[in-house]
Every structure is written in structure tokens, then in C-alpha cells.
């Protein structure tokens, strides 16, 4: 259930493009034709699904406060999280190079379709953004991190596919000259983002019971406290009466 919720949330509610504007540069530059957009989208899914779990491991076992505990007691107090930017971007850059080499060796046809886009991806904010959000949202397990990588990649893929299709059609429309090209693409993306905001309500239904549980838990604690308080009061009174006697 957790997995399904994260999956839909990353694709629709927290869509990389429409909610956080990640990877906008390549989104605008490579969305003139559907076929190239599909290539870049597929490459983004591919790279995100590798780098997010990898950076999750780095974060858990190297960077977080107390992450070095596995090395021994004396390392447990180290907090290397200030290094996370440089570690994440180094991982991404090397992984992209590595993936490029491996894909070229084992699947030339995939390389031909993805190849030209792979170097572009190292500097795509969506990839680094995926890792940074994974860190700041404190995703708990490796499985969830993998899920997050794949699903946010799919969200990005959907976004670039949609805008490429619209841009292919809009060539035949009478757009005001000054808005042609970049201007109208911005405005259309804005309108699409408004559309995607309607998915925001999709998951709130599941959130409310959790909040209620929390509330009842708090109330129960308060009741317990009161009970403890009254008990101490009773014992105090008892003590006082004993002393009087």
C-alpha cells in the first residue's frame, strides 16, 4: 500500500515538472518533436531508477548523522551530510558515464536511441533533484527509494511527452508572433500544471484517518498524564494525612 501510494504521488501529485519545475531546461529544449522527447524521457527514467537507490545507499551508510556507525563506535558521531551535494553529483556523473559505456557494449540499438541524450542527463536538474528530495523526505527503505526513482521518472516522461505532442500540433495555430516558440510553451506548461494540481486531492482521503489516530494517541497520552497526576496527588494527600496522624 505504501508503495502504491508513493508511486501515484510521485507521478501525479508531486510531478517533477509541474510541481517543482525540475529539468525544465531540457524539457523546453528537447520537446519540439515527440520522437526525441520519448528518447530523453526514457533515458531520464533509466538514470533516475539507478541513481536514486544508489544515492540512498550513500546517504544511509556514509553521509547521514551516525551513518558511519557500521565502521565502529568511534565513528558513530560523524555527520558528513554537508558533503551530500558533491557526493550525489559525482555519483550521478560517473553513473551516467558508466551506463553509457555499458549500454553501448551490450545493446547497440538501445544506445542508438538513448545515446545522444545520456550526456545531457548528467546536468539535468531532475536527476539531482530526485536524489535531493529522496534525502530531504527521508525515504525509509531501498525498495521505496527505487520506487521513488522510477515513478518520478515516469512523471517526467509523461510531462515531456504531453508538451511535445502539443507543440507539434500548435505549429498550425495562429499564435501571436511575439509569443511563438518559447512564450507559448511556458504558458501551456502553466496551464497543464494547473490541470495537474487537481490530482492534489487524490491522496488526501488516505491521510485523514492517520491524523485522527495521531489525535487520539495524543488524547490518550494526556489522559494517562492526568491519571498519573491524580495518583501522585492522592499519594501526597495520603502522606500528609499520615504525617498529621
Amino acid at each position: 500500500m505504501e508503495h502504491i501510494e508513493l508511486f501515484f504521488k510521485s507521478i501525479f501529485v508531486d510531478n517533477m515538472v509541474f510541481a517543482y519545475f525540475l529539468g525544465m531546461c531540457s524539457y523546453l529544449a528537447v520537446s519540439k518533436k515527440v520522437s526525441t522527447a520519448v528518447g530523453l524521457g526514457a533515458a531520464v527514467i533509466f538514470v533516475l531508477s539507478i541513481t536514486v537507490p544508489l544515492n540512498w545507499l550513500l546517504d544511509q551508510y556514509l553521509l547521514q548523522e551516525g551513518a558511519l556507525a557500521w565502521l565502529g563506535e568511534e565513528y558513530a558521531s560523524y555527520d558528513l551530510s554537508f558533503l551530500s551535494f558533491i557526493m550525489f553529483i559525482a555519483t550521478i556523473a560517473t553513473m551516467v558515464q558508466l551506463v553509457e559505456i555499458v549500454v553501448e557494449k551490450f545493446s547497440p540499438s538501445l544506445y542508438n536511441s538513448l545515446g545522444i541524450f545520456l550526456p545531457l542527463i548528467a546536468v539535468n536538474c531532475a536527476i539531482l533533484g530526485g536524489s535531493l528530495f529522496m534525502q530531504s523526505r527521508e525515504i525509509e527503505t531501498l525498495g521505496l527509494a527505487l520506487n521513488y526513482g522510477v515513478s518520478s521518472g515516469i512523471g517526467w516522461f509523461l510531462a515531456i511527452l504531453a508538451i511535445a505532442a502539443i507543440r507539434e500540433k500548435i505549429r498550425y495555430s495562429a499564435v501571436p508572433p511575439a509569443l511563438r516558440g518559447l512564450g507559448i510553451t511556458f504558458i501551456i506548461t502553466g496551464l497543464m500544471a494547473i490541470g495537474f494540481m487537481s490530482f492534489g486531492g487524490m491522496l488526501t482521503g488516505g491521510d485523514e484517518p492517520v491524523k485522527n489516530e495521531e489525535k487520539t494517541a495524543i488524547i490518550e497520552k494526556e489522559i494517562e498524564k492526568e491519571q498519573v497526576d491524580t495518583e501522585t496527588e492522592v499519594s501526597l494527600v495520603d502522606n500528609l494525612t499520615k504525617e498529621k496522624e
Binding site: 509541474f18 510541481a19 517543482y20 519545475f21 509569443l179 512564450g183 507559448i184 510553451t185 511556458f186 504558458i187 506548461t189 502553466g190 496551464l191 500544471a193 494547473i194 494540481m197
Partner: peptide, 10 residues
Amino acid sequence: LPPMALIVVG
């Protein structure tokens, strides 16, 4: 809300 940033830049 986020979408308006896009429209303002447009």
C-alpha cells in the same frame, strides 16, 4: 501557486 510562475515568465 507554482503554475503561475510559468505564466508570469511567459
